[in-house]
């Protein structure tokens, strides 16, 4: 039997993002999904999507150093974001059950910001298409380095490379390839 402790999850998320995010997801998924279904009349699949989105928002905010301190428990934070996402989804007045106002306010800001940030222009869309069509190991290396912000050593370990130097060289090749494909796609066709 363990009592609930508000460990410094944010630090763990920054230092060991892979395992920590999975732990947080597994610890809170079932209860939060049930809570969303019960209090916000969400269907289960909808609640699963909302919780997944909340997890991603948490992850991104920690990685971007926009969330460096929790004023309430991690659970309250996740529930507040989930609640706001449910609000956004339904766009109707739902009784507020138990999220502290300050957390709710911050969650509103973050979610709004999140929505704005995902609007991308044509050039970014072109690069996204190139990224989506990349093959491994480039896809995994670039995702691990630029999105997960993993170190070269961590990537080497994850991908069973002999050393971080191998990853560095491989990453250089991948970026070259990506920029080349992108710049070629921009050239006017004859």
């Amino acid at each position: 039997m363990n009592k609930y402790k508000n460990t410094d999850w944010l630090l763990l998320l920054r230092n060991e993002p892979n395992q920590t995010l999975k732990t947080i997801y597994c610890n809170h998924r079932k209860n939060c999904v049930a809570w969303l279904c019960k209090n916000f009349k969400c269907r289960e699949t909808e609640a699963e999507d909302i919780f997944q989105e909340a997890i991603i928002i948490l992850y991104e905010k920690v990685q971007e150093r926009k969330l460096t301190e929790l004023r309430s428990s991690l659970k309250s934070y996740l529930y507040a974001i989930s609640k706001h996402l449910a609000f956004q989804k339904h766009r109707k007045s739902i009784e507020v059950l138990f999220a502290p106002n300050s957390v709710e306010f911050l969650a509103n800001q973050w979610v709004t910001q999140q929505t704005q940030e995902t609007d991308i222009n044509n050039k970014e869309q072109q690069i996204l298409t190139v990224l989506q069509n990349l093959r491994n190991p480039c896809k995994t290396i670039l995702y691990a380095y630029y999105f997960k912000k993993m170190s070269m050593e961590e990537i080497a370990q994850m991908m069973n490379y002999k050393s971080s130097d191998v990853v560095k060289t491989q990453k250089y090749r991948c970026m070259n390839k990506l920029f080349k494909i992108f710049l070629e796609s921009k050239k006017p066709k004859d």
């Binding site: 995902t118 991308i120 690069i127």
Partner: peptide, 9 residues
Amino acid sequence: DFLVAMKVF
């Protein structure tokens, strides 16, 4: 642009 696209990806 790459970093924005990477975020979506």
